[in-house]
Design a protein around this nucleic acid. Structure first.
Lengths: 118, 118
DNA sequence: ATTTATACTATCCTTTTTGACCGTTATTGC
DNA sequence: GCAATAACGGTCAAAAAGGATAGTATAAAT
């Protein structure tokens, strides 16, 4: 009998054909690694993130933050109950397991800039 | 004076706000890292890649291969001049600089599978 | 009393990515 | 003569991602 069904990996309800695509499903997209990269160093508030990433729109930023939170990579801590809110975002322990990877991603991008666009 | 224009990084005509997003612009997307991952070990022909990645469509695979080639990460070597063609894909030297990163991406995905979906 | 500030959310729309499906070329095997 | 094969490309459509813009609640500052 032929193997007709390729064995899939599963994480949080989504199927991935390969361990590499699983990772990319979680940190892929235009902004997630940028957010994670900025959170490596320290906790940041929503508007602080916006200042670090001036080209992202508010809507996209909050969608991405929510997705990262749902995947358990970041945590959202609220300090006030009424507006104006104070909210801080930081990496969870699970999110911290990504630090070496995020750092490598940033470093490779850096090295490309050094070599090809100076 | 306020700084109104965020300093952008540039690679192959595209602008990125951050070294991490530059990397993701090059290897991001649903399939690119999977292709690169399979090419780490050895050169592969088009149909061999298809067998390794049974859930990608032919069109998408060829689009992604072309994009990777245009970014200089893989090279396409044609062995015959008339159909049926023999074509082999392999990493360029530039593409090989990504091997540790691709490996880390795959390893992190693996570790997630180990911990959370066994 | 009005403005400013925070951290969003809601609509609506455009762009990008991915998929389904079929066609092409020339050679080899039946 | 017909099907199979390799490596695609073309067209159309759906889905996913991202952007523009405006609005919300409440408190402190002016």
């Amino acid at each position: 009998m032929e193997n007709s069904e390729p064995k899939m990996l599963n994480f949080r309800g989504k199927e991935y054909p390969c361990c590499a695509s699983l990772t990319m499903g979680i940190i892929g997209g235009k902004w997630k690694t940028v957010i994670l990269y900025h959170l490596i160093e320290k906790k940041l508030r929503y508007n602080e993130l916006r200042k670090e990433m001036p080209t992202v729109t508010e809507r996209t930023l909050s969608l991405q933050l929510k997705a990262l939170e749902e995947d358990g990579l970041i945590k959202r801590k609220v300090y006030t109950s009424k507006p104006p809110l104070k909210v801080e975002y930081s990496l969870t322990d699970f999110g911290k397991t990504l630090i070496p990877l995020i750092q490598s991603i940033a470093d490779w991008g850096d090295s490309v800039v050094e070599k090809y666009s100076k």
